[in-house]
Amino acid sequence: MAYREYSFDQLQLALRSSSATQRNFVRGLLASLAALILGGCASLPSIAPFVEASSQYRSAVVASGAVVDAELIDIGAKEEAATFGKEWAVRVRATDALVSYSQALESIVASGAQGAQSARSVADAVTGLASAVGVALPPAATVGTVTDAASFVYGQIAAVRASAALGEALRNATPAIDRIATTMGLDLNSAQDIFDAANVQAKTSLVKKYNAESAYLESLRDARLAIYRKPVRTSADEERLLQLDRLEESTRSWREPKEAQERALAARRKAGDQLFASARGALTAWSLAHRDLAFAVESGRKVDVTALVASVEEMRGLIKRIQAL
C-alpha cells in the first residue's frame, strides 16, 4: 500500500478551508496515518447471541430451581425446600454474573463501533469549554473538518482498543468461566437427583394411597387369568368373566383419578428431566462458545454460534412447557 506524503502547508490549507474536497483531503490523510500506525482495523465478532444465550441460561436455572422447589413442597419436604432455595440462590447469582459479564463484552464491542461518535461528543464538550473560557475558535467549518477527521481516526483507534480489550477480558475470565461451568454442571446433576427423588417419593405416596384398591384390581385380573388358562371353559366360567368385567368397570371411579395423577407425575418428571438435560447442554454450549469467542478474537475469524442458538431455542421451549404444567 502506497502512502502519499503531504506538506505542512497543504495540511494547514486544508484545515482553513471549508470545502468538501479539502475535508476529504484531511480525512484521507489521517485515515492513511491511522492505517499505517494501527496496521489495519480488527473486525469484532457479534456478542449478541452470547448475551441472549446467557440470559436464556439464567432463565433455565431459575426454572430448574422452581421445579425442584415445587416437587419438594409437593411431598411436604418444606425444610429441604428451604435449604435448596437458599443454595440455589447462589447458582442464580452465578448466572447473573454470567449475564453481566456477557453484557460487558457486548458493551466493549459496541464501544469499538461507536468510536467516531464518542470522539464527536468529546469535541462538542471541548467546544463548550473553549466557549466558557472565552477562547476564540476558528471558523465553524474548520472546527467541523478537524472534528470529522479526528472522529474518523478515533473510530479506527476505538475498534483496535475494543478488540484488545475484548481479547483481554475473554482471556482473563476464561479460568473462572470454566470452573463455573464445571461446578454448575455438577449442581444441575444434584438438582435433578433431588427433583427425581422427590418425584419418586410422590409416586410412593400415590401407590400407598391406592394400595388396597390396586390389590383388589389385581385379584380380579388374577381370577380372569385363571379362567383364561383353563383348557375348556364352562358356562359358569363365562358367567364369572362377565361378572369380573362388571367388577373391573366399577373400579373406574377411583382408577381414573389415580391414573390421571400418575400421568401428571410422569409428565412432570419427563419435562423436568428434559429441562435439566437442556440446561446442562446449554451450559456446555455456552462455555464452548466462550472459548471459541476468545480464539476468534485472537485469530480474527468468525464465531460459530449455531449450537448456542439451538440450545437457546430448546431451553425457551422447555421453559414454556414447564410453566404450562
Binding site: Y101, A104, I108, A158, R161, A165, A169, A173
Partner: peptide, 13 residues
C-alpha cells in the same frame, strides 16, 4: 471481570 470489561468499554467511549 465484568466490571473491568465495562470500565474498558467506558474508557473506549
Amino acid at each position: 471481570q465484568a466490571d473491568t470489561a465495562a470500565a474498558s468499554a467506558e474508557s473506549i467511549r
